[in-house]
Amino acid sequence: MRALLLRELRLALRHPAETLSAVLFFVLVAALFPFGVGPSPELLARLAPGALLAAALLAALLPLDRLFGAEAEDGSLDQLLLSGLHPATLAAGKALGHWLTTGVPLVLATPAAAALLNLPTEAWPAAMLALALASAILSLFGAAGAALTLGARRGGVLLPLLVLPLSIPAVIFGAAAIEAAASGLAPRPYLLLEAALLALAAPLAPLAAGAALRGE
């Protein structure tokens, strides 16, 4: 498991294009909102919580279709499955690697996107924490979706259709936490609900992904 995670990190460092494209997509979507809805600071601040979560999750989807694809093409996925590592553990490692190489950079880019959307600075910590939880949830569900669509025709089209509906509760609670922080209220209840979703997804999504990989 440790070797798998280190391998994911080394690959991300050698080929940073996927991480950079996700971060740039996130920031550019946030930059486009003032052009689409107008430059009104009040309107932008009201839209910022949902826009941040939606843009970040869409950006995190970009590298998901290659989560198992490269290993399946060169045969290393079969070797990993034969190595004695449980398929669910393999899927959990891939999900953690995706979060570390995509989710964490998106969290670090959150202040820039929040500034473009005129989100009050006092809400930035809550926005970063909400986005960290939401991206972790997406990584887990994304690993399950990537395993289920592995080898399918137009798997890249099917993957968002499987993953995004499962991520809607994370968007709702994350946006509510950011809105509460921006209004001077406590975001903790909504963050706890988001953390509960993560605790539910952490064991279930790798098991589903592992079952799909075993079927491959």
Rank of each mutant, 00 (worst) to 15 (best):
M128I: 06
L148T: 03
G210M: 05
L4K: 08
L138E: 14
A152V: 04
L116C: 04
S76W: 01
L80P: 09
L77E: 13
H98F: 10
A130L: 08
P203N: 05
Q79K: 15
A196N: 09
G155C: 11
M1G: 12
A205Q: 02
A132D: 00
T149P: 01
H15Q: 11
G145E: 02
L197V: 03
L58E: 07
A12R: 10
A180T: 04
A22Y: 02
E194Y: 07
L32Q: 09
A201T: 01
A175K: 01
A45Q: 09
L162T: 06
G184N: 03
G174L: 01
L204F: 09
A115C: 06
P34E: 07
L148E: 06
G215Q: 14
L198I: 06
A126M: 00
V163W: 02
D65L: 10
L47R: 07
A56N: 02
A177L: 07
A208F: 02
S167P: 04
G103E: 00
T110K: 00
E122C: 05
A17Y: 03
A115G: 14
P165I: 05
L108C: 08
L81I: 11
A130H: 01
G93V: 13
G103R: 01
L44H: 02
P111G: 08
A202M: 13
A70T: 15
S83Y: 10
P111N: 05
A114C: 09
A55N: 02
G156T: 07
P120M: 06
P41A: 03
A205E: 10
W99V: 12
A196D: 14
D65F: 10
L193N: 06
R66Y: 04
Q79W: 14
A195H: 05
R14C: 13
L32N: 15
F35E: 07
A3N: 12
A186E: 15
A147C: 12
F26S: 05
M128L: 13
L108F: 10
A113S: 12
L192P: 03
L20N: 09
A72N: 11
L90A: 11
L108M: 12
F35M: 13
A60P: 02
G215H: 14
